[in-house]
């Protein structure tokens, strides 16, 4: 060891550098391990505090819900004081909200307001973190917090689909009438999933009068127009047939397809005649929809005659026509037997 120190102090640069880096990295490693251990300790302490707080709150809430909901002193004594207590209180209330309904749900809403948790939720609603925003909208929906509406409406055009979905859920869940009026403010295309989601929310959350979907046929977004076309057929809004007809001539092929499907479901009597004329000139993707719809209306003979209207170059639709004619033949045989 003495020889080593002597060699180092005698001044070979490489040994000096070596010694310096050894000491430096040892210190960095120690610091890193120390920081990790400290952070772990802090996390464990925080988790213990949360657990303890959760137990205190859930014990209190049992008594509040099932024994004495009018004990103002107890409510005040459990008022969350800091951020961690606020977060835990919201979590515990939401666990109860998810499982209870009726008078208990009303009592939970009362407690939420008594603890002024709406301010915490409103603050989180303006957060830059998407999951905080989505969670706050979810809480607002479940507890039917009307005062959050103006903040939530802005999020229907969020870039995060999770936030958009929560906002849609909130607005439909809160609506007394016209649950999809928010679509007027939407400037981001609706995905197919969102279209299905809106329909599902209307069926499960909304109990008012079904809106007039014809109102949305003039919307600047094609996806909203397609959604409106589908919904008109879904809810049998025959009075909107006149507004659908111009879409058969639309420049956009998706809109033409949606109009054909919608009119077909509404059993519009002149549809077959109108779309048959279009067979030779239509795009192949629209032509297949026309063939499928005509198959439902035509007799075997009439349907077979359509082959002359399909251009010879459209091999795919000629095969489709052959298959559809075959299935029509089988169906008519069954009917005859």
């Amino acid at each position: 060891m003495n020889d080593y120190i002597k060699t180092v102090s005698n001044g070979e640069l490489i040994l000096h550098v070596n010694l310096f880096f050894s000491v430096f990295f040892s210190l960095v490693s120690l610091l890193l391990v120390g920081t990790i251990l400290y952070m772990r300790y802090r996390k464990l302490r925080e988790n213990r505090k949360i657990q303890k707080r959760r137990e205190i709150l859930s014990d209190f809430m049992m008594r509040y819900l099932f024994e004495n909901p009018n004990d103002e002193q107890a409510i005040e004594a459990h008022q969350p004081q800091n951020n961690l207590q606020l977060r835990t209180a919201v979590q515990v209330i939401m666990e109860f909200v998810d499982n209870f309904k009726g008078e208990s749900l009303e009592l939970l809403r009362k407690l939420f307001y008594a603890w002024r948790l709406q301010k915490y939720v409103q603050h989180k609603l303006q957060s830059k973190l998407w999951y905080d925003v989505a969670q706050s909208i979810y809480i607002s929906s479940e507890l039917k917090l009307e005062e959050m509406r103006e903040h939530v409406v802005k999020h229907t055009n969020s870039t995060r689909k999770e936030i958009r979905q929560q906002a849609i859920f909130y607005l439909i869940n809160m609506a007394q009438e016209n649950p999809i009026s928010f679509l007027h403010q939407v400037d981001k295309p609706l995905s197919v999933f969102e279209q299905i989601y809106i329909k599902d929310c209307m069926d499960t959350q909304y109990t008012g009068v079904i809106p007039e979907f014809g109102e949305y046929l003039e919307h600047p977004l094609e996806s909203v127009q397609i959604f409106a076309l589908k919904m008109i057929a879904e809810y049998n809004q025959f009075e909107s047939i006149g507004e659908i007809l111009p879409f058969l001539e639309s420049e956009r092929e998706e809109l033409r397809i949606a109009a054909i499907e919608s009119l077909s479901k509404l059993e519009y009597p002149e549809l077959s005649e109108r779309i048959e004329q279009k067979l030779p000139s239509e795009k192949a993707s629209v032509r297949s929809h026309i063939l499928r719809n005509l198959k439902r209306k035509y007799s075997l003979g009439d349907f077979q005659n359509l082959v002359g209207l399909i251009p010879e170059t459209d091999y795919k639709n000629r095969v489709l026509h052959f298959n559809l004619a075959n299935s029509l033949r089988k169906e008519s045989k069954k009917l005859y037997i």
Binding site: N99, K101, G102, S104
Partner: peptide, 8 residues
Amino acid sequence: TKPFNPNE
């Protein structure tokens, strides 16, 4: 069915 009313 859940959610349920505890009194019920």
